[in-house]
Design a protein around this nucleic acid. Structure first.
Lengths: 186, 186
DNA sequence: TTCTTAAGTAAATCACGATTTACAAAACAG
DNA sequence: CTGTTTTGTAAATCGTGATTTACTTAAGAA
């Protein structure tokens, strides 16, 4: 019984555990407040291993953010109901890790800003731009990100009452309309 | 000539110089990267004076943000052309200190988050809410802040090409429409 | 002028966290 | 088994920056 507790030493597994813990902590706390001590403790590992397996805290952050950013979330929605579907997704109780807080937190540290811009561009902006197509595709993709970022900033990071917990149908509707307007604007 | 250089010691003037420098530095750099050394150097003062005149770095930040937040910027616009006017203002080359980057930076530091939420609520959200009136005024005010915050995050903090420098008329238009929609949505 | 108080400075203190180092224990190949 | 390599740990190191302390200098009143 409990064979899981009889863990042998396993570098790959440890590395993965640290990465998962990093995603959780980095999306819950500002980069500067997310200490390697906390992350490795959550992973049941030792702070020194970050250096060995990832090189540095910044590299760990980069990999954590990179894995978390996923354009598919956005580009799988049907075009005609994009706003509605995405607004629903945004206002649902999140199960998976949300990359937006990590982006916001990354905004507040010199070293992580460049990483965030690069990853956001590669992994989300470009794919959304390609999906959205038509005129001014890049600007429209950016606009979608901006709407999402503003919303999650005040939902998850600097909580404002109207965006916390269950949001009103009106907020959802306005969000949906803004998003749909951008998608249709070509 | 140059009477200005013959500065006598003057606590009030020094305090003010530090406060102004703080506004500049805090809106240009993440809170953690904005050192008191840099701020006081810019003010031509000594780091120890922050403690004397403001109590702590956080208190200095609080006062700097508080002075910078100004709902009047938003609530002076004519209602029917709100979106247009504000979009113009947002995309204009800023002269005065912009509080939004400070808010974004504050979002990324445990100690300043609470301060930011409180000041934002008192000094901007409530006034805008009162000005906007009608149904769901609080939610609509929050929505306006969210749009502004998303936009400036990618204009001034994590620069994305479509929002940098001179923005295209389209971006301006979409911004204006989103904002106007919220104002009219009662 | 002299004395007191306010303003300013330089340097120590203190805390904290990332990174490194030197070491110990386990895995595993032969 | 035995020796080598990999994985993991504990404890220094190192830098940084806010805050405090002790001190110096200027201002202004008596």
């Amino acid at each position: 019984m409990e064979a899981r507790d009889v863990r042998k030493r396993d570098a790959a597994r440890t590395r993965e555990a640290i990465l998962v813990a990093a995603q959780q902590v980095f999306s819950a706390r500002p980069y500067g407040d997310a200490s390697l001590k906390e992350i490795t403790a959550l992973a049941g590992a030792n702070p020194a291993l970050v250096s060995r397996y990832f090189g540095s805290k910044e590299k760990l952050f980069e990999e954590a953010l990179s894995e978390t950013l996923d354009a598919g979330m956005l580009t799988n929605a049907p075009r005609e109901r994009f706003g509605e579907v995405i607004a629903d997704m945004f206002t649902a109780r999140a199960g998976r890790i949300n990359p937006l807080p990590m982006l916001v937190f990354a905004a507040a540290d010199k070293g992580t800003q460049a990483i965030a811009v690069r990853l956001l561009t590669e992994k989300t902006l470009k794919p959304v731009e390609a999906w959205i197509g038509g005129a001014h595709a890049e600007a429209r993709a950016a606009q979608i990100m901006a709407i999402a970022t503003g919303f999650f900033t005040y939902r998850l990071v600097l909580p404002l009452a109207p965006f916390e917990g269950e949001v009103s149908p009106e907020v959802k509707t306005w969000l949906a309309r803004s998003l749909q307007m951008i998608v249709d604007a070509d």
